[in-house]
Design a protein around this nucleic acid. Sequence first.
DNA 1: ATGTGTTCCTGTCCGC
DNA 2: TGCGGACAGGAACACA
Length: 283
Amino acid sequence: MPELPEVETVRRGLLPVMEGDVIRKADIRRPDLRWPLPDRMAARLEGARVERLRRRSKYILGDLSTEETLLVHLGMSGRMLISGAQVGQFHHDHPAPAKHDHVVLDMARGPRVTFNDARRFGAMDLCATEAIDRHPLLAGLGPEPFGNDFNEDYLVARLSGRKMPIKAALLDQRIVAGLGNIYVCEVLHRAGISPSQPAGAVAPQQVAQLVPLVRDVLAEAIEAGGSSLRDYRQADGDLGYFQHRFRAYGREGEACPTPGCTGTIQRMVQSGRSTFHCPECQR
DNA sequence: ATGTGTTCCTGTCCGC
DNA sequence: TGCGGACAGGAACACA
């Protein structure tokens, strides 16, 4: 499930449970996810206070009192399940570990955070906080979509001369961090740009449009994900409510929702991944 | 330097 | 109900 809005939703869900509290016990139930877990992971986590829980791209970063930062990536199927938290109240009652529960963190106040990941494309690591920006997984990332570094001039410069399809370019985390397959489809649909158009051939005026559209789509999705947090008990890791607002993604064969457009949403495959688009209004 | 295809792993859904 | 195949939100890596 996780693109930037889903990761941000998960982070917000974890905030009241983790930030400011100490990890009392860490149960590392297997030695690896996508890569081996860090050495002595449990010992390095136990007793550490989570000073701050932040996000960079699709990574959740927990700055610890030990001057290390816990890095979490959810991959395709990773979830952070919360138990022992009710509205404004915590308890120590937890269900037995389930299939694919790989890392279990018990907080001192009582709640438990369980990293569950069936496909195991997720990752966790520990790294000196001071060096986190140089972590191999973070070092090459492009700007945050909501940051000032992501702007019209930047995007025009990064796309110019590139022959790869615009869809692949927006999916490239070195160009802009946080977009995934769903939201790229949604952004290009709103922008009226064909996903297969070479990135460098998109008119600068259209590239300029992409910047606010990326922000709109992500912000709306975060807001919709947030709405599923209102009755938050367990971080269920599903899509929140934004899925009902997709205009292109997953809508093959349906009428294009663009006002005045008579087209039909098509599915095609680009570099091995599904692209949903309207050939009528995306040019 | 760029662009593309493959790969990791498990679960689910759809057609026969 | 079982079985095979396609497909799934990511992204590192190998290769042309």
